[in-house]
Computed example of a mutant assay.
Amino acid sequence: MYDLTGFQRDLLYVIAGMDDPHGLALKEKLDQYYESEIHHGRLYPNLDTLVEKGLVEKGTKDQRTNIYRITNRGQREIEARRGWENQYLDESATPT
Score class of each variant (00 low, 15 high):
residue 1 M to W: 00
residue 14 V to T: 08
residue 9 R to P: 08
residue 64 R to W: 15
residue 28 E to S: 09
residue 28 E to R: 12
residue 55 L to E: 15
residue 29 K to I: 11
residue 5 T to Q: 04
residue 38 I to A: 00
residue 39 H to W: 03
residue 52 E to S: 11
residue 12 L to I: 04
residue 59 G to E: 02
residue 42 R to C: 07
residue 77 E to S: 04
residue 51 V to S: 09
residue 15 I to K: 11
residue 15 I to V: 12
residue 18 M to I: 10
residue 25 A to M: 14
residue 94 T to N: 12
residue 27 K to R: 15
residue 39 H to Q: 07
residue 38 I to H: 03
residue 72 N to E: 15
residue 3 D to P: 08
residue 35 E to Y: 06
residue 56 V to M: 11
residue 11 L to P: 15
residue 91 E to N: 06
residue 69 R to L: 06
residue 70 I to Q: 10
residue 5 T to W: 03
residue 62 D to I: 00
residue 11 L to I: 12
residue 4 L to G: 13
residue 25 A to R: 09
residue 62 D to P: 10
residue 24 L to W: 07
residue 86 N to S: 07
residue 59 G to W: 01
residue 16 A to V: 04
residue 67 I to K: 09
residue 58 K to L: 04
residue 50 L to C: 05
residue 91 E to G: 01
residue 85 E to H: 05
residue 31 D to H: 12
residue 16 A to R: 10
residue 17 G to E: 13
residue 62 D to Q: 02
residue 13 Y to E: 11
residue 78 I to V: 05
residue 80 A to N: 15
residue 7 F to S: 06
residue 7 F to R: 10
residue 76 R to P: 04
residue 93 A to V: 07
residue 18 M to G: 07
residue 36 S to K: 15
residue 73 R to V: 03
residue 68 Y to R: 05
residue 79 E to M: 10
residue 49 T to Q: 06
residue 14 V to R: 00
residue 53 K to G: 08
residue 73 R to W: 00
residue 76 R to H: 01
residue 2 Y to N: 03
residue 29 K to M: 14
residue 88 Y to N: 12
residue 16 A to C: 08
residue 4 L to V: 13
residue 73 R to F: 02
residue 26 L to G: 02
residue 80 A to F: 02
residue 63 Q to N: 01
residue 7 F to M: 08
residue 33 Y to I: 11
residue 85 E to S: 03
residue 44 Y to Q: 07
residue 92 S to T: 03
residue 49 T to I: 09
residue 41 G to W: 09
residue 65 T to F: 03
residue 90 D to R: 02
residue 38 I to S: 05
residue 51 V to H: 06
residue 79 E to Q: 14
residue 10 D to T: 09
